[in-house]
């Protein structure tokens, strides 16, 4: 073993390798103003559009509508960005034909994903800070009015978004670059059934059963309950956390299986072509 490097299985080496992934993405963001711009652009557009829709509805005496819809917009962005940022981090390695360079380093798949997740957290935190400030300034809505429940709400959505990103990455590893559309769109499959902007009870019964198996639906239902004055529904949050654990387990298994498959079929090599 060369003395210039940390012992490969030590915590210092693991920390440094994860930091390498985060450093790379931070440097790329710094060098690419468009990447900074897109953190803010879509969330702000959504906030402005939905904000004025809610002001209109409020003027028509629909109760709680401002807080409920703006809360939904903000929390939806957490889920959306968590999924997309991790997927994009991976896709940028595909686009720059850098994936092989990464896979011949000692970085483990777990360390790579950890790095992508940490970087996504940084971007989401930045985007959320801007959006919550705007929501307060433009519409007088304070996201923190959700109270302590906000922390598990956000955590459940982040974890679900990361799990969806792993599924999207797995699809690209399995089917090639043509499957990258999944990275952009997978999260939207969950939008109608998660009851982001309306209660799950308005869905047909079959979809309500499906929604019950989606962690995000419990978060958005819980958020509406809290903004309506009810206490944080810790029991349904517990269910959402348990569902999240299941989603993550399946996503990790899928990622691991598709990586093995990509190596067995030589697909990983083709990302260098």
């Amino acid at each position: 073993m060369t003395a210039i490097a940390f012992e490969p299985h030590g915590i210092s080496a693991r920390r440094r390798r994860v930091a390498g992934v985060v450093y790379r993405d931070l440097a790329a963001m710094r060098r690419s103003p468009i990447r900074v711009f897109e953190i803010l652009f879509w969330p702000v557009i959504e906030l402005v559009v939905w904000g004025y829709v809610t002001l209109f509805l409020q003027a028509n005496k629909v109760p709680f509508v401002v807080s409920m819809l703006l809360g939904a917009v903000l929390l939806w962005q957490v889920l959306h960005r968590a999924s997309n940022e991790v997927s994009i981090g991976f896709l940028e390695d595909v686009w720059s034909r850098n994936l092989i360079n990464l896979h011949v380093t000692p970085v483990t798949p777990g360390e790579y994903v950890t790095g992508l997740v940490l970087f996504s957290l940084i971007k989401i935190a930045g985007g959320l800070a801007v959006m919550t400030t705007l929501a307060y300034v433009l519409y007088g809505f304070g996201l923190f009015s959700v109270g302590i429940g906000l922390v598990p709400f956000v955590a459940v959505l982040l974890v679900l978004g990361w799990a969806l990103a792993l599924v999207a990455i797995s699809a690209v590893l399995r089917f090639g670059e043509g499957a990258q559309v999944i990275a952009w769109s997978l999260v939207f499959v969950f939008q109608p059934i998660a009851g982001v902007f309306y209660p799950v009870s308005v869905l047909p019964e079959v979809l309500q059963w499906i929604a019950a198996a989606v962690p995000a639906s419990h978060v958005f239902e819980g958020m509406r309950a809290v903004l309506g004055g009810a206490p944080v529904p810790w029991d349904t949050l517990g269910l959402a956390i348990a569902l999240d654990a299941g989603y993550v387990a399946v996503a990790l298994w899928l990622y691991s299986a598709t990586l093995r498959h990509a190596r067995a079929k030589g697909r990983l090599s083709r990302f260098g072509e």
Partner: peptide, 29 residues
């Protein structure tokens, strides 16, 4: 380590940033 003429590197990064990044990926002190 490995190098191939057909591989790319993250195009938006400066060369020093690429090397800094890979030095971390190899857990260099």
């Amino acid at each position: 380590n490995f190098s191939a003429s057909y591989l790319g590197l993250p195009g938006v990064l400066h060369v020093r940033e690429v090397l800094n990044s890979f030095a971390r990926l190899y857990a260099l002190r």
